[in-house]
């Protein structure tokens, strides 16, 4: 029902357009909050609302001062560097272990497959506050609480389900006769993996890595408990700002993060298309 048939009654016509308006409003609800903060982050005043100058589109109403604050304030800079130090290492850990395990899991005969899968997926299912509580208790027992290493391990654990899910999904379309053909021609398992299997499942691995990265980069509950002031990440700093003294710098940071999300979304879409193209090419 993408267009209205010519024989539609008046009632149907009204409903057709009313329904589109309703859907339009819901889309507006979805996107508006994110759009609104972008112009507000250029506010020349320390307000969270549109000033009359902004509404008149007067250049004086806009400024980059909140962005300057973000790049000059040592708290925000430290937080940004912490995020950039934690997320890539956590991603590396989850992707390394996760890809190997996903390849293992997609072998034809795996004992206890369901149980293993349930354990590996569990960090995604368990509410974050419970993971955070458990990790706080356990990591303080073994001396990891409040350390950089502890936060990285915790974030790696949280990112693993995403890697497992995306890589196993890619492996479903992988033709196993390719590895057999490689072995037949004398390639050892390691060569087969890096020269045959890896290039084909790479899109899945990269999108898994992106998921793991964004999980760690956006994560705040676990780092709040497992980390100490020395591991204060960007979301943590935002959380403090929101809870205590809300400053417009948060909106500048938020706008930057939205820009990052757009880049990630675009990358994922490109990868998805590439993966589909590759799969279309492989036989079967």
């Amino acid at each position: 029902m993408s267009s209205l048939p010519p024989y539609a009654t008046t009632g149907q016509t009204i409903w057709f357009y009313a329904f589109r308006v309703i859907c339009g409003l819901i889309f507006f609800f979805l996107i508006a909050p994110i759009i609104v903060i972008i112009p507000l982050s250029f506010n020349a005043e320390d307000f969270f609302t549109f000033t009359p100058e902004m509404l008149r589109l007067d250049p004086d109403g806009y400024s980059l001062k909140h962005y300057q604050d973000f790049f000059n304030n040592s708290d925000w800079q430290a937080a940004m560097w912490n995020s950039l130090k934690i997320a890539p290492v956590a991603t590396l850990l989850s992707v390394g272990f996760g890809t190997l395990a996903a390849i293992g899991l997609s072998q034809p005969h795996v004992p206890f497959r369901r149980a293993i899968m349930a354990i590996l997926i569990s960090p995604m299912i368990v509410p974050l506050i419970i993971s955070a509580a458990g990790m706080y208790f356990f990591y303080s027992r073994i001396g990891l609480q409040g350390t950089y290493f502890g936060v990285v391990l915790a974030h790696a654990a949280l990112g693993i389900p995403f890697v497992i899910i995306t890589v196993t999904a890619t492996l479903v379309g992988f033709d196993n006769s390719l590895t057999r053909a490689a072995a037949n021609m004398g390639a050892d398992p390691v060569t087969t993996f890096f020269r045959v299997q890896m290039p084909l499942i790479l899109p899945g691995v990269i999108s898994g890595a992106l998921f793991a990265f964004i999980t760690s980069f956006d994560e705040v509950v676990v780092v709040l408990f497992v980390g100490s002031a020395g591991q204060k990440t960007l979301p943590w700093q935002m959380f403090i700002g929101l809870r205590e003294q809300i400053s417009p710098t948060i909106l500048a940071v938020a706008t930057l993060l939205v820009a990052i999300s757009i880049c990630l979304l675009a990358t994922l879409e490109i990868l998805r298309r590439r993966s589909e193209r590759l799969r279309g090419m492989s036989p079967g």
Binding site: I31, P33, I34, I246, A254, L265
Partner: peptide, 19 residues
């Protein structure tokens, strides 16, 4: 329009609502 909010940081969306 559905995926962009999905990919946007939770704190960004929460701060948007606070604003």
């Amino acid at each position: 329009l559905v995926l962009l909010p999905f990919w946007t940081s939770l704190l960004v969306r929460t701060s948007a609502w606070k604003v």
